[in-house]
Simulated scan of single mutants.
Amino acid sequence: MKKKTAVLVCVTGQRDCDRLIKAGRKIADREGLSVQVLCVLPIQAGSKDCSEELEHLRQTARDADAEMTVFFHDDPALMAVGFVKQIGAVHIVTGMAEAPVNGFVDVIHNLLPKIPIAMVGKDGTVYNLLPESNRTPVVQALA
C-alpha cells in the first residue's frame, strides 16, 4: 500500500496554534496535499485539563479539512518524526521556538533533513528551513 503524502502541522496544546493549522492548509492547497495535525503533550499533561484548547484546535483542524492526532509522550520531536514516516509527510509546519529553545525543530531537521520545515511566527510570518538551504532560514509570506 502506497503511503499518502501530507503536510504535517505540529501544534502544542495552546489555542494560538490555530495559525499553524491555517498556514499548513495554505501550503497543502498550494502543493495539492492533505493536512494532518499532530499534538504531542507531556505524559503528565494527561492529568491536566487542556480540553478547551485541544477542542479549539480540533475544530480548527476540522475546518481546515485535516485530521488531528494527540499523543502523550515526553519526547515530542521523536514522536513527530515517527508520525512523519507513518503518514508520508513531505512538509512540516511548526511554530517559532521561543527562548529557551527546546531543540524540537533541530531534532526533526537532523533526523529528516530532506523534508522542508515551515516555522510560523506569532505575527504569521513563515520562515522556511529548506533542505538545500543548508539551514539558512528563508522568510516567505503566505498570502
Results as ranks from 00 to 15, higher is better:
residue 1 M to K: 15
residue 2 K to R: 06
residue 3 K to D: 11
residue 4 K to T: 15
residue 6 A to E: 12
residue 10 C to M: 14
residue 11 V to E: 00
residue 11 V to P: 00
residue 13 G to M: 04
residue 13 G to R: 12
residue 14 Q to E: 06
residue 16 D to H: 05
residue 18 D to Q: 09
residue 18 D to E: 08
residue 19 R to T: 15
residue 21 I to W: 10
residue 22 K to F: 14
residue 24 G to F: 03
residue 25 R to S: 02
residue 29 D to H: 08
residue 30 R to P: 02
residue 31 E to W: 08
residue 34 S to C: 07
residue 36 Q to K: 06
residue 38 L to N: 11
residue 38 L to Q: 06
residue 39 C to F: 00
residue 39 C to V: 00
residue 39 C to D: 09
residue 40 V to L: 07
residue 41 L to S: 10
residue 43 I to Q: 10
residue 43 I to M: 13
residue 47 S to L: 12
residue 49 D to M: 05
residue 50 C to L: 14
residue 51 S to C: 07
residue 51 S to V: 12
residue 51 S to D: 09
residue 54 L to C: 10
residue 57 L to Q: 09
residue 57 L to R: 01
residue 59 Q to Y: 13
residue 62 R to K: 13
residue 62 R to I: 00
residue 62 R to A: 10
residue 63 D to F: 06
residue 64 A to R: 11
residue 64 A to L: 04
residue 67 E to A: 13
residue 69 T to L: 05
residue 70 V to C: 14
residue 70 V to Y: 00
residue 74 D to W: 12
residue 74 D to Q: 10
residue 77 A to V: 01
residue 77 A to Q: 10
residue 78 L to G: 03
residue 80 A to C: 10
residue 84 V to Y: 15
residue 84 V to I: 15
residue 85 K to C: 01
residue 86 Q to P: 08
residue 86 Q to S: 13
residue 89 A to Q: 04
residue 91 H to T: 15
residue 92 I to L: 11
residue 92 I to T: 04
residue 92 I to A: 06
residue 93 V to H: 05
residue 95 G to H: 05
residue 96 M to H: 05
residue 97 A to C: 04
residue 100 P to R: 12
residue 100 P to S: 12
residue 103 G to W: 02
residue 103 G to H: 03
residue 104 F to G: 03
residue 105 V to G: 08
residue 107 V to W: 01
residue 108 I to L: 04
residue 109 H to I: 15
residue 111 L to W: 11
residue 112 L to Q: 09
residue 113 P to V: 10
residue 113 P to S: 08
residue 114 K to L: 02
residue 114 K to F: 00
residue 118 A to P: 01
residue 121 G to Y: 01
residue 125 T to F: 02
residue 126 V to I: 05
residue 127 Y to P: 05
residue 129 L to V: 11
residue 130 L to W: 03
residue 131 P to H: 02
residue 132 E to K: 06
residue 135 R to Q: 05
residue 136 T to V: 14
residue 137 P to N: 04
residue 137 P to H: 12
residue 138 V to S: 10
residue 138 V to T: 04
residue 139 V to G: 02
residue 141 A to K: 07
residue 142 L to S: 15
residue 142 L to D: 09
